[in-house]
């Protein structure tokens, strides 16, 4: 890995490389360059994952021609695919080195930080939603019970916007979650469930199930489960697999011309 990055930088195949380096005992994202080529000896995979592709998106917005190399776990790769589809990054300007991701029965070693999900506490199991549930299990609660459980989870929200800020595929210049006509301001928790449902709808055709939002949520709301449900629908109805399909998401309204036909109301 280090040799490959050194070669890329020396031969100018990439201008910068985003990877990880130990700093003060913490594995932190680091930008490697030709000027500081000796630092490559410190390049590591790191056991904490950050959205390097989100950093790349910010860098590319300021320096559109820059060639960026980055270390990619499976989730980073899926996020890159979405960013290509939504024209936030140009695939020609990106080089990746894939690293080993989450362990499974097939491969025991993994470099990912999402190795062992935290076990839900008894109270959460009793009145809330266990973050480790799958969509099917979460749907088995009766309608009223399910509603109460979700509302218990959502009303914990501190409105920190961490779920949006950390998300690799949240790149909008103006975010609906801060739009006063859509969501009332000035109170915590924010308007529930609308705050979370607005975001959930936006994640249709975008969310690549990396789990960074849930990692960043200070109150442990099962966000990933919510977005999985949404993308299950996207997959069933539109046959669109977010993060792996190469074509545009069915929800992108931008294009050369309007293709929707007016219908009588």
């Amino acid at each position: 890995m280090q040799e490959q990055v050194r070669e890329w930088l020396e031969q100018d195949s990439v201008d910068i490389f985003l990877g990880y380096k130990m700093v003060q005992g913490h594995p932190l994202p680091h930008c490697f360059t030709k000027e500081n080529i000796d630092e490559i000896d410190d390049l590591i995979v790191g056991n904490a994952r950050y959205s390097l592709e989100k950093m790349a998106t910010k860098i590319a917005a300021a320096h559109p021609e820059l060639k960026i190399g980055l270390l990619t776990r499976d989730c980073n790769q899926r996020a890159l695919n979405v960013l290509y589809v939504w024209n936030q990054l140009k695939p020609d300007n990106i080089e990746t080195i894939s690293v080993n991701c989450c362990p499974s029965k097939l491969k025991e070693h993994g470099d990912c930080s999402y190795l062992e999900p935290e076990k839900a506490a008894p109270l959460k199991m009793m009145i809330g939603i266990d973050n480790n549930m799958d969509v099917k299990a979460a749907e088995e609660f009766g309608q009223e019970d399910r509603y109460k459980r979700w509302m218990y989870e959502l009303q914990k929200c501190l409105k920190c916007y961490g779920c949006r800020d950390i998300c690799p595929v949240c790149f909008c210049k103006e975010c609906s979650l801060e739009h006063t006509d859509l969501i009332a301001t000035g109170s915590v928790p924010p308007e529930v469930p609308i705050f979370h449902l607005v975001r959930a709808v936006h994640m249709g055709g975008r969310c690549i199930d990396c789990g960074l939002c849930e990692d960043a949520c200070p109150v442990d709301i099962p966000l990933r489960l919510l977005y999985r449900k949404v993308n299950g629908i996207v997959s069933d109805v539109f046959d669109y697999k977010t993060g792996t399909s190469a074509d545009q998401s069915p929800f992108n309204m931008l294009g050369e011309e309007v293709t929707l036909e007016l219908k009588p109301i």
């Binding site: 594995p27 994952r49 950050y50 920190c160 961490g162 800020d165 950390i166 200070p218």
Partner: peptide, 19 residues
């Protein structure tokens, strides 16, 4: 600003001020 994921105090989380 980003939360430091390996920090013992906040373990990758921040409040709105920190963000």
């Amino acid at each position: 600003t980003l939360p430091m994921k390996t920090h013992p105090v906040n373990e990758g989380k921040l409040c709105i001020k920190g963000w």
